[in-house]
Simulated scan of single mutants.
Amino acid sequence: MIGFWQGLSLLLLAAAGFGCLYHIIAAQLVRSFAQRQPVPPSARPPVSVMKPLCGAEPGMAENLSSCVAQDYPDFQLVFGVAQPDDGALAEVAKLPTDRVEITTVVDPTPHGRNLKVGNLLNMWPHVRHDLIVIADSDIRVGPAYLDHVVAPFEDAKVGVVTCLYVGRPVEGLWSALGALGVNHGFLPSALVARAIGRKDGCFGATMAVRRGVLEHAGGLAALSDSLADDWVLGNLVRKQGLHIELAARPVDIMVHEDDFQTLLAHEIRWARTIAAVDRPSYQASLVTQPVALAMMAAAVGGGSMISLIGVVVACLSRLWAVRAQEAALGLPRAGLGLLGLREFLSFVVYVVASCGRTVIWRGRRFVVRRDGTLDLAEGSIP
């Protein structure tokens, strides 16, 4: 008769086996996505690109310049900051204005708990066109970026176009760990979700929407108290019977983490955002960590031969998936030590994010409600 601990070990090994299969499938999906050939749009309507800014982050000059250098005939760039002494303004001032209309908004007026959305609301009166792209300041794009985003709108049933993103570390260990989490955690999982029919992923790095669709959803004000403003926008659009579509190419997101504390706070905020909008799926995502599951199986099983074999198989399958994704996305090969540290950190983030609802965002502490909206935590400065 199998004892409790032996039974638990076998159960964990079975979960690790599912995790290995998940990563093999995910790697194949990344390969297929990377091989997609973009279809250029037959029409290129005017576009307004909204970029909320907060501080002069590393690489900002190159990030903003890449948005200016679009091979697109008619687009407007609208930048917004809350304070006149924001360092991002100096970077915006350096941008050439001979080939694109640039509007800069400085407005501290608050709107709800989500500071990014509040910034967007202040920018909104200056948006001129009916096709709107909301893009984060830390993305770096190619000259066909707007073409890739506009093309899916030729299908009238598409309500939002969003972009996957590839992490590019700016410098240092912590940035490298953050980028690994994006490239071998977020990106593959988003593709797996779509492959199994979960097409509700809307990602804040880039969200494109028609003005009429956004206004019918309640406008930007409908997002002003939500931590997961991207998910809420996608959900409001889907309620109109419209779809969320992926652009043919991902964008680069420049990952800069000063220290371990900053990295951990960011990743816990992202994880608790996901858990807030879909906690059962988040908790089930433990199966995507086969190395941790196999090691737990070995621990509770007393280091049995089958559990140790399970650890080896989990490590090798995870490594194979990472190498396949690196090759597909044109990424440099990460060292084994760095990958091991990333696996450990991912498990820590999962456990911590599962055990609370508090997040730190731009120096303020919030509590995430079950509906994904934000409350200032006690003692936080409003």
Rank of each mutant, 00 (worst) to 15 (best):
R365Q: 12
I24L: 15
L177R: 08
G55K: 02
P46R: 09
R168I: 15
P58A: 11
A275T: 05
L227E: 10
L8G: 10
N63R: 04
V251D: 07
L11V: 13
D86P: 05
A144C: 13
V322R: 05
M123K: 02
P41N: 04
E171K: 13
A90H: 09
C163K: 09
V106H: 12
L115C: 09
A271N: 06
R364P: 00
V322D: 02
A56P: 05
S65N: 12
S9C: 07
R238V: 12
R365K: 14
Q35K: 14
L95C: 08
Q240G: 09
H184L: 07
G59T: 08
A195K: 06
Q289R: 15
Q283D: 12
R323V: 08
S380K: 06
S346M: 11
A221Y: 01
G212P: 00
C315K: 12
P332I: 01
W174D: 06
L77V: 13
A276N: 04
G159C: 07
F18H: 13
L316K: 03
A271W: 02
A377Y: 01
G19W: 09
V312S: 13
G80I: 02
S9H: 07
F153H: 06
Q6A: 15
A353K: 02
A190Q: 11
S285R: 07
V81D: 03
A82R: 15
H23E: 11
S281A: 15
G302K: 04
Q76A: 04
Q70D: 10
V100Q: 05
D147W: 04
D200A: 14
L214H: 03
D71P: 00
A353W: 01
E326Q: 13
C315I: 12
P188W: 02
L180V: 00
V133L: 13
R365I: 13
S304G: 15
A144M: 14
Q240P: 00
H111S: 05
A208M: 12
L319N: 01
S189F: 13
G80W: 00
L11M: 14
A327C: 08
G59W: 01
P38N: 12
